[in-house]
Amino acid sequence: MMLDRLLPLACIGVALATVPNVQWRWVIPLVLAGVALGYFLPLDIPQGLFLAAGFIAMGGVLICSNIWLERFIAPAALLFGVLAGHALNSLANEPRFSVLQAALPALPVIIAVLGRAFYRGWFGIARRIAGSWLLAAGVMMLALFFKPPDAAQTAAHDPASAMHDSSRPHIHEPDGSITYLPTGRADQPVTIPGKPDFIERKFGTGNEP
């Protein structure tokens, strides 16, 4: 369930609930146009970058003042629409689609509407604090996305290395590959591919006493 991709919808809902003079006639069509664009355009965005960009955009919108929010609400609406459309496209192919989980992003929107209706001044504080969290998490995610993968972690997640059976006698080749030594009966010839005289050099050719 890629619920994270529906978070932009929650954010645009909160932003819309917060802007004092929302230009509904402009914003709603822009959101819908963005959803259509995001749904039908073949966007190939890596998950990490999608999350980071979404969190930074959401945090940015929530943290800015009402004056700036009124200016940015139109392009933000289009951007969030695209993100939400992309999310809906992904969800359409999701085998286990849960309506309950998909409805969860509506929770912040409902609270935003209630907060604005009853405690407008205080809601502005909560909005900015939540925005700073999202922005900070987005910056960290962006840093993680651009960090080169750790060599040790890459090796640990490598399927080839996961299949390595260390209980069997083996040698590590200089190129990183692993060669397993034969473990058959004693009368079988013990040779290592590419190193036919390895055992002889190691243990000599003499028989046991």
Binding site: M1, L3, D4, L6, L7, A10, V14, Q101, L104, P105, L107, P108, I111, A112, L114, G115, F118, Y119, W122, F123, I125, A126, R127, I129, A130, W133, L134, A137
Partner: peptide
Amino acid sequence: LQFGLAFLGAASFSVAAAQAHA
């Protein structure tokens, strides 16, 4: 009550974000 609602507004985002990250 005011503080509680402000807190709820901010915390609800954390719930959504938490769910969002599987």
